[in-house]
Design a protein around this nucleic acid. Structure first.
Lengths: 221, 221
DNA sequence: CAAGCTATCAATAGATCAATTGAATAACAA
DNA sequence: TTGTTATTCAATTGATCTATTGATAGCTTG
C-alpha cells in the first residue's frame, strides 16, 4: 500500500536540509550569519575562501532553506532564515559538544587557556545594580546589527587604544559571538593583564537573543 | 595569532555530527531508533536494505555520536544516544517542514488524505474524563519499549481482527511514531469506515515523551 | 569443536561533492 | 557606452560517499 518509495522520498527531502550541515565551510558561514547578515564578498573575506566557492556554499544553504538572499544595490546579502534556522544551528553545535569529545578538544585548542565565565542571570542582576560594565568585543558591524541591551561596543582590535574608557574599579564582562568565539577570551586575558577585574559572558549574542524570545517548546505536527 | 587552521578544525569536528544527517538512509535509521533500540538485523529489515549497508550507516551515526551500540548475545543493539540526540533529530525534522516546501509535499504524498488531529492538551483533558480510548498502533515491540500512559496496544496489522475490543460509543484516538508515520492516519481511516468516531494524535510517542521531560531551554557554554 | 547466525570488514565501481579556474552576467558609476 | 565591482555559472579535477559483493570474525548452541 504505502510504497517504500514515497517514504524514502520524504527522508530524501529532509536530508536536503541535513546536507547543509555536512561541510565545515558551510558551518562557518552559518556561524558568521548568526551574527549579522552579510554579502558574499564579506563572507568570502571573513572565511578566507574564494568568492566562487563561497557563493556555491551559500547556494547550497539557500537550497536547504537555511538562509535567505536579497539583492542590495550591486551586492547580494545573505541572512539566516529566521529563528528556526538559528536555533537549529545552535542545537547542532551544542549537541556536538555534548556527544563528541573531538569538538571539545578542538575548542580548547582554538580558544586557548580558559577564562572565568559569568552566567546570564548573574549578569542581569549585577548589571541592574551597576556593578559591571558590559562590553561587546565583536567587530562594530556586528554590534550594529544587534547587541545586548546596555552593552558598549569595543572591538577587540581597538581594545588597547580605548583602555582609558574602561573603569578600573568595576568588573568588566566581555562577550562576543558565542562559546566558540575567541574574542571574549582574548579580551578578558588582555584586560586582566592590565590589572582589571574581568570575566567573559557564557555564550554570545545569538544565544542571548534567543533566550529573550518566548521559549518555544517542541512543536508537534 | 589564532590560526585559521584551529578554527577550521573546530568546524570540521562539528561537521562530523552534521554528516550524520546528510543521508536519507541514516535519517530513516534515526527515525526507527527514536521509537526503540534495535539490532542491525531488525533495522536492515525495517528499512529494506542490506545488512552490510545498514551496519555501515550505523557506524557513521555512531561516529557522529548520535547512537550508542551494545553487544547483546549474538547481536549488536543500537539506540539513540540520549534525549540530546533525539531532540536534535526532531528539531531538524520540524525545521525542514517549516523551511522546505518539498518536505511538506513529500509528506502529503506519503501520508495520503489528511485526517483530523487532536492536540496534546485536549487529549489529556478528555482522557481524564474517560471520553476517549487511546490506541497505540505501532508494532508491539515499540509499544513495549515505551508508550503513552493509558494507551492500549493494537498494531495496525491486527486492527481488523480486534475491532470488537474497541467501543463504538466513544471516540478513539490513534497515535504512532510521529507526524510522518502513516500508521495512525491509516488506522483512523479504517476506523471511520466502520462508523466509529476517530482522530489521530498530533505527533507521536517520541514527541510526547520529550514534552513530559522538564523543558530544557537553550544552554549556553 | 562444528554449525549457524550476526555483524563487520575489505575491495570495488558508480555517484556525488568540493574547490579551482576562467568566463558570463548584473548593477552601478563616470 | 565603457569600465568596474559583485556575483554566479560552467567545466574540470580530485576527493569523498554510497551501495554491493564476498570474505571474515564473534557469539551461541548442539
Amino acid at each position: 500500500m504505502n510504497s517504500r518509495h514515497e517514504k524514502y522520498a520524504l527522508f530524501e527531502a529532509i536530508a536536503l536540509m541535513g546536507k547543509a550541515f555536512a561541510s565545515p565551510r558551510r558551518l562557518e558561514l552559518l556561524d558568521l550569519l548568526a551574527q549579522a547578515p552579510r554579502t558574499v564578498h564579506q563572507l568570502a573575506r571573513a572565511s578566507e575562501q574564494s568568492r566562487a566557492n563561497t557563493s556555491q556554499h551559500l547556494q547550497a544553504l539557500h537550497a536547504a532553506g537555511m538562509v535567505t538572499r536579497a539583492r542590495e544595490r550591486a551586492s547580494v546579502r545573505y541572512a539566516l532564515a529566521g529563528d528556526e534556522a538559528l536555533s537549529l544551528w545552535l542545537a547542532l553545535r551544542d549537541a556536538s559538544v555534548a556527544q563528541l569529545g573531538e569538538v571539545e578538544r578542538a575548542a580548547r585548542d582554538y580558544l586557548g587557556e580558559d577564562v572565568e565565565a559569568v552566567g546570564r542571570d548573574e549578569l542581569i542582576a549585577r548589571l541592574g545594580r551597576g556593578e559591571v560594565v558590559l562590553v561587546d568585543v565583536r567587530p562594530s558591524e556586528e554590534y550594529a546589527a544587534g547587541h545586548i541591551d546596555g552593552a558598549r561596543s569595543i572591538p577587540l582590535d581597538e581594545l588597547e587604544e580605548r583602555l582609558a574608557d574602561l573603569p578600573t574599579d568595576r568588573e568588566i564582562v566581555a562577550y562576543c559571538r558565542g562559546p566558540f568565539c575567541a574574542y571574549a577570551h582574548e579580551a578578558v586575558r588582555r584586560l586582566r593583564s592590565t590589572g582589571r577585574s574581568a570575566r567573559r559572558l557564557e555564550g554570545g549574542w545569538p544565544e542571548w537573543r534567543l533566550m529573550d524570545q518566548p521559549t518555544r517548546p517542541h512543536k508537534a505536527a
